[in-house]
Amino acid sequence: MTKVFSGRKGEVEALRTVDLDIRRGEFVSVVGPSGCGKSTLLMLLSGLLGRSAGEITIDGTSITGPNSDLGIVFQQDVLLEWRSALDNVLLQAEIRKSDMGEARTRARELLRMVSLQDFEDAYPRELSGGMRQRVSICRSLLHQPPLLLMDEPFGALDAMTRDQLQIDLLKLCAARDMTVFFITHSISEAIFLSDRVVVMTPRPGRIERVMDIDLPRPRRLALREDPKFIGYVRELTEIFKSLGVFKEE
């Protein structure tokens, strides 16, 4: 599958022959430098962008238009400032015209799982960056999608909040059967969360390597000091060095 953007200054090849199989229920992260087409890949998967060549299939069906059978979390939380935390989560059900009573119960349960039960009625401006992103994750999960797409969801958060949200996310994922496609700049974040890590090259983005992460679940923060974890970090860092993403001299 390839993607070529045509703009005023001619064409930009964002992705070149990306070929990737994602298994049902697995957590796949994509790591790569800025501008390697990670986000483009996610937009193609969601059907919000059309591809130039090739095919994307989910469960054997080809994706041709916006695919709504999924949840998306962006780097910005994209909460609607006129809705309370609970109503922001419920937006998902309102748009889909789902049963509101049932949705409300589930929304409350989701907020409780990320420790926001006391902030149901708070407006987004009354919440911290980490809390807002947690609300947006709850919103993406309300309709129990089989696929969750996350585009650098923790990129705008400070390191400590980030750690907490990684733990929250793993907790939410463990509670359901769901495939997660996670995009990040952070090597250790990708390893910590994933079953497989996809390494992408600078533009035009290709897949350099797909690495299986063989670490036990549930994962705890202490795992990051595990020699095996550190080994993965070293291996990925070496790959990016060989790609010229890191230059130490």
Partner: peptide
């Protein structure tokens, strides 16, 4: 914002819902 519209479309919102909500 474009992100709001992406979000709306990922939920399957129609033009009417995008305007009102």
């Amino acid at each position: 914002t474009p992100e709001m519209l992406h979000l709306a479309r990922s939920m399957g919102a129609n033009g009417w819902q995008i305007f009102w909500k």
